[in-house]
Design a protein around this nucleic acid. Structure first.
Lengths: 177, 177
DNA sequence: TAAAATATGTCAACAAGGCTGACATAAATT
DNA sequence: AATTTATGTCAGCCTTGTTGACATATTTTA
């Protein structure tokens, strides 16, 4: 009541719990898991003067070689200018090359070089090791449960992007089955 | 061979696949899932002029009421200055209050106000709904498999932080069992 | 063919949220 | 009394996101 603004500014001393109807366990697990998952490549990136933005670009260019700038923007959901900065650096350092589009010569197809391929793999390796360790001796069914859950966490409109990636368990060899 | 730097700068036209010994499926699923998971609260935060940094602070103050500034820094793994900026705003807007530590009067215990509690729940709700939808009609065993996996993704030293949170399935009522 | 739309690049400017290092204060510890 | 600790604060830097404007080459459309 000693409060001018209508709200009560006194401290609440009890914690929010799962009983508040909110799935705090998984919310927090996702936060901690993702934080540590992304920390793996950071040391490697630092050696190159790169950041996570470079990592993401390099990753998807290696996963979808020949994709255009517009397609990359659509996958990453960032703006042209944000991409331009890091893409320029990756091109200048010889990790990515641009090739004029064969049908539409306005387009620039993006491909990794050997150097870019090698760095992409080096960055993926510690993350993959962490995943493998976390799966431990999980059964195939458990692994599928985890993948199904993660995929269902993605906005439905964007699940198509995942299916279009090559060699994903839930969408192999883009388009066939 | 038309290359001065020793590396081959020609475009690689094949995609990296899971066969390269790297678990790309889950790497990418984590990226997409986390991206959309964190996008949920963003609209709400924007109404308050807050960002994700505010969200994280508010969340953990609500989950561990009375924690000190140093403890919060340890959970978030950011620096004092990064915290100071957003914490000040949350205090100025009446979402969090500081209480002088009872034993050590140098410490400032952080508590949510009613307003802060309410916002924290509002932010958690859409995330919780997304998780619930993603779990669908998963069995209890599947849910446990997912939680076990996510927890195992966290650096071992830091798993203690998770166990110290109240009401987490894998570590209830801090300390007893 | 001329006009309009498209793909890309680039410039300037801004904001959020990380970072570092330095320094001040109060309180606790030695 | 001296030192250490917990916190706050100042100045300044970096990365990576944003917007809006504009230029260029190329394709599509009228």
């Amino acid at each position: 009541m000693t409060d001018r603004s209508g709200t009560n500014a006194s401290p609440i001393r009890t914690a929010i719990t799962n009983e508040d109807g909110v799935d705090l366990s998984i919310i927090e697990l996702l936060f901690f898991a993702y934080r540590d998952f992304t920390s793996d490549p950071d040391q490697i990136l630092a050696e190159y003067g790169f950041g996570r933005a470079h990592h993401r670009v390099l990753h998807f260019v290696n996963r979808m070689p020949g994709l255009t700038v517009a397609e990359l923007l659509d996958v990453l959901k960032i703006t042209k200018q944000s991409l331009a900065r890091v893409l320029k650096q990756l091109i200048d350092t010889g990790h990515i090359v641009q090739v004029q589009g064969p049908r539409d010569r306005r387009q620039r197809e993006l491909y990794p070089t050997e150097k870019g391929r090698s760095l992409a793999l080096a960055l993926a390796r510690p993350q993959s090791r962490r995943i493998s360790a976390a799966l431990g001796n999980s059964s195939m069914a458990e692994r599928e449960g985890i993948e199904r859950f993660l995929k269902a966490m993605v906005n439905p409109e964007l699940r198509a992007q995942i299916d279009n990636l090559p060699g994903t368990t839930s969408g192999k060899s883009h388009g066939d089955e």
